[in-house]
């Protein structure tokens, strides 16, 4: 097996162990005296009303996530090109420019229709 994979496995194991101990420390060391008021969800002294998981929030957040996927895939596509672009030369640059231009037009459109506006 390649040594770097072994190192990655060891690193992941060590990190997981340390983080797990840190997360579980209170459960192991802390005292336990639960009561209703303590276990209640924080609501600034009031009783929590209604269902939280069906709580509605602005549609803007969904839009941001969708835009993120579009542009993040663009960025991911640019990495392999960035590594070999000296070999591809001007041809590769023109191809990438065409690709980015299409997305830049998309960004300009999204900007123009106000999808990036928050109030």
């Amino acid at each position: 097996m390649d040594e770097s994979y072994l190192a990655l496995l060891i690193s992941a194991g060590l990190c997981a162990l340390v983080v797990a101990v840190m997360v579980g420390a209170s459960w192991l060391l802390g005292k336990r005296s639960p009561n209703r008021a303590k276990n209640a969800v924080f609501e600034a002294g009031n009783r929590a009303v209604g269902e939280v998981k069906s709580h509605r929030f602005p549609v803007k957040f969904y839009l941001t996530a969708i835009l993120f996927i579009v542009f993040d895939v663009e960025v991911v596509f640019m990495y392999p090109w960035a590594v070999v672009f000296r070999r591809l030369g001007w041809f590769g640059l023109a191809e990438m420019a065409a690709f980015v231009l299409v997305l830049a037009v998309g960004l300009a459109y999204v900007w123009r229709v106000g999808a990036l506006e928050w109030d």
Binding site: V19, S26, G30, P34
Partner: peptide, 30 residues
Amino acid sequence: LFTKEDIVPEGADRFLHWLAPFLALFPLFL
């Protein structure tokens, strides 16, 4: 902090409540 009481609030998803801090720190360490 390590010897404080560990509280999982009422109605919380216990498994995800445990998983979240782990997922927040583990990738950063790695």
